[in-house]
């Protein structure tokens, strides 16, 4: 399959000297791909460059084979980008938002009205199309933007932290809507369960570099047959000590700790969060 996004030595240094991307090389080619990483890892900068809103300092970036600088106008006809923490204008209705956006993408007003109504109905906002968005809940407001993506008929849809700040139920609802999107989706998140639930391919970036790319199984491979032991170990996250060991080793560790009077030890199954933690440790050690 053709790469949906490709970057070569992509670097972005902001005016204040902060290096957000550091010679990032990345290729993603799945229908729903996730870019995960800690706050400040460079996820939003990457999405802004890929969706032609921000110019890189150096390096190259391509979306569906189109250069984000040279072919930006062609590319913009193919993409839909929903910014991080985008909010609806409270006084306008969901329908007005969608029609404004869809005409911006080049649809006629009649087509935009039809597409908007269909998309709003599909995300469960069919009964609220003509009221002020101030009257909607946080989840419903977020769904307006998912409806934009749904109606856009874009080939590539960038969703930058689409569920940030939402309660668990609203998040599940938005996940459902994301799964319905027809185009290829590039999604950034720092919710590991979101990446696990939605994405076919996951890229971990840290300090502006891609440190791991693969599907969930591939990324979890180094932790296969291991559990996470909290309360003891070489890895420190704040006050928390962590180690990754086999279940037998974990039992042994717990017994030893109890003998030493340490009862604050627990065992948890490993998840994508642990891949991120270990990746961070590897970067630190380098």
């Amino acid at each position: 399959m053709e790469n949906i996004i490709e970057t070569y030595k992509l670097t972005k240094i902001y005016g204040n000297g902060i290096k957000a991307l550091d010679e990032l090389d990345l290729k993603l080619n799945s229908r729903i791909s996730c870019i995960i990483g800690r706050n400040g890892a460079g996820k939003t900068t990457l999405v802004k460059i890929l969706s032609t809103q921000l110019r890189q300092t150096s390096g190259e970036a391509f979306v569906m084979g189109y250069d984000v600088i040279k072919d930006k106008h062609k590319l913009r006809k193919m993409i839909c980008s929903i910014p991080q923490e985008a909010k609806p204008a409270g006084i306008s209705s969901p329908l007005e938002h969608l029609v404004m956006y869809l005409t911006a993408r080049g649809f006629s007003i009649k087509e935009s009205l039809n597409l908007a109504k269909m998309a709003l109905k599909e995300v469960g906002l069919g009964d609220f199309i003509d009221i002020s968005t101030d009257e909607l809940s946080g989840g419903m407001k977020r769904k307006i933007f998912v409806a934009m993506a749904l109606a856009s008929q874009a080939e590539v849809i960038f969703l930058d932290e689409p569920t940030v700040g939402l309660d668990p139920i609203s998040r599940l609802e938005v996940w459902g809507a994301i799964r319905e999107l027809k185009g290829n989706v590039i999604l950034t998140t720092h919710y590991m369960e979101e990446a696990q639930a939605l994405c076919d391919q996951i890229a971990i970036i840290d300090k502006g570099k891609a440190i791991k790319v693969g599907n969930l199984n591939e990324l979890m491979e180094p932790l296969k047959g291991k559990v996470r032991v909290e309360g003891i170990g070489d890895i420190s996250i704040g006050e928390l000590k962590i180690s990754y060991v086999t279940p037998d080793e974990a039992k042994k560790l717990i017994s030893e700790a109890k003998i030493n009077g340490n009862n604050k030890i627990s065992i948890k199954p490993v998840s994508l969060e642990d891949v991120l933690i270990l990746s961070g440790v590897e970067i630190e050690n380098e």
């Binding site: 809103q53 985008a86 956006y101 911006a104 993408r105 960038f158």
Partner: peptide, 10 residues
Amino acid sequence: KIQELLIAAD
């Protein structure tokens, strides 16, 4: 962030 949305919509 409506400006960002519109830039990417050309």
